[in-house]
Amino acid sequence: MSEGVGHLPHHGGAEPHEGPPPGLPRQRRGTTPQGYGRYPDFDVLDQVDHWDEVTRRVVLSRLEKIPPIRFFDEREAATLGAFCDTVLAQHSEPRIPVLAMVDAKLHAHQLDGYRYADMPPDGQTWRQVARCLDEEARALRADDFASASQGIRDNVVGRFAEGELAWEGFPVEKAWAVAMRMTLSAFYSHPWAWNEIGFGGPAYPRGFARLGPGQREHWEEPPEFATDPVKDVAERGVEGE
């Protein structure tokens, strides 16, 4: 089934929606965000003994206790946490603590080396995104973005992504770029996300030896496409779509 592409969005596969994607196996080894992934028997953390010490420290620190939110206030954190969950489809535990990672970076004044001439500094951009998301949710008769239904959140984020929202004096497309840049680099720096996508992770000093098409190292696992969705859904005790 890996030969088919029916699971891909260009071919009618996953669209933004609630609940787990149909047919995706439950993770059997290690942790993945939301407990499913394409590589159910792969845990990149089994390989930590093969990583160099400096890299190991840096990567494993991402699994340690999450720092408290310090840059955003409570209200912003609620809105932006819901935003990160929506754009990453993190609708259930276990979640990668993306907003906490973003907050830590902004709190430490870590910059990315550029700012659009017509945009405020990144931290202010995030705050403004929080305000605007709440306003958009209220315009759709929710109390705020965080407490809005998944449908409303998807609606607002969908229009944000398409650049269809008009926010006074605030270029929406660039705001989307700034927010998504940080969100994605937080999520895909996390070993749980590597488990989900079957990424081999740090490979120093061991390196890779099997480079050809369809080849893998002895410790890499094949993807699993052949799960019977009906059985799998029943096993996981979740409703189908």
Binding site: A14, P21, V87, L88, E196, I197
Partner: peptide
Amino acid sequence: GQALREYMR
């Protein structure tokens, strides 16, 4: 959202 996660997987 889910589409991005699918391409990532």
